[in-house]
């Protein structure tokens, strides 16, 4: 499952890695936009198979952030 950015933002922190087990609601990446830290949360339980961003990357709405294999 592809997790995407909801807003144009800078990537501030990546808080997961390939192979990590995540639960629904876990913070995967923290974006920075509109002077706020905007967490990107996992929509499902699963395993991270790809991380598409690194800190300081620029993303726009709809850009791929993380891919998760549902468990």
């Amino acid at each position: 499952m592809d997790v995407t950015a909801e807003i144009t933002a800078n990537v501030w922190q990546v808080r997961t890695e390939v192979g990590a087990t995540v639960a629904e609601g876990d913070e995967l990446v923290i974006l920075e936009s509109m002077k706020m830290e905007i967490p990107v949360e996992s929509p499902i339980d699963g395993t991270v198979t790809q991380v598409h961003v690194k800190p300081d990357d620029q993303v726009t709405e709809g850009d791929l952030v993380v891919t998760i294999e549902p468990s």
Binding site: E6, I7, S33, M34, K35, M36, P39
Partner: peptide, 8 residues
């Protein structure tokens, strides 16, 4: 709702 889009 600061949790989503920083409340923007």
């Amino acid at each position: 709702q600061p949790k989503v889009l920083g409340g923007a």
